[in-house]
């Protein structure tokens, strides 16, 4: 057995033993931690933008992690599919916190919030991404999966559009052409393109 296969099997065994609640708890903690840091000076002298940006970045990172699950299984044989729902819901949790910080702490005035959504393309794009994720979060429970049947899979393909919009939103929010958001956009592009790779026929023994 090659080292690669040993590693893969070890990972898969460990993943089977890890309860999903661990992912929920560990994944959710950076939210309140960032808020606490913002309150106590850990985010620097302008904590509102820092908190808003940190939460937005966590959201994008969890979306990307969720997007990586099926290519990992298909191309590397690593099966983390049990954790995909947790990753998706954590992404939605951070998107919601990001939106709330923008609304309540950053812009503050409701009329201006609406004006920003209408007038500023990068905010419109972010809002569309949030609205696309909303039904996905609401139908992430097992009951919805059973009830929707094959339609559930089609519905949840909306995440491809949402994550693409989210990474474009990140590129647009920065001043000048900056490297970091382009790396995220590139990663999202690769993960989406991998889904277009032709599938080998499954051989039935």
């Amino acid at each position: 057995m090659s080292g690669e296969v040993v590693l893969r099997d070890m990972l898969n065994r460990a993943a089977r033993r890890l309860p999903t609640w661990v992912i929920y708890v560990l994944g959710a903690l950076p939210g309140p931690w960032a808020f606490y840091q913002g309150l106590t000076g850990g985010l620097g002298v302008e904590p509102i933008s820092a908190l808003e940006h940190a939460l937005g970045l966590y959201a994008l990172q969890f979306l990307i992690a969720g997007l990586a699950i099926s290519p990992l299984r298909r191309f590397a044989g690593i099966n983390l599919i049990r954790f995909r729902r947790a990753l998706g819901l954590l992404a939605f949790y951070y998107v919601t916190l990001h939106l709330l910080v923008w609304l309540l702490l950053d812009v503050q005035v409701l009329a201006r919030v609406w004006a920003d959504i209408i007038k500023r393309p990068y905010i419109s794009i972010g809002m569309v991404a949030f609205l696309l994720l909303l039904p996905l979060a609401l139908t992430s429970n097992s009951l919805s999966i059973r009830k929707l049947g094959p339609r559930w899979r089609s519905l949840h393909r909306a995440v491809y559009v949402a994550v693409l919009l989210a990474s474009v939103h990140f590129v647009m929010v920065r001043k000048g052409l900056q490297l970091e958001p382009l790396i995220y956009l590139g990663l999202v592009g690769v993960l989406l393109l991998l889904r277009l790779a032709p599938r080998r026929r499954v051989r039935v023994a």
Partner: peptide, 9 residues
């Protein structure tokens, strides 16, 4: 700058 997390505009 300097108004903290609940700084008003």
């Amino acid at each position: 700058i300097g108004g903290g997390l609940f700084s008003a505009r």
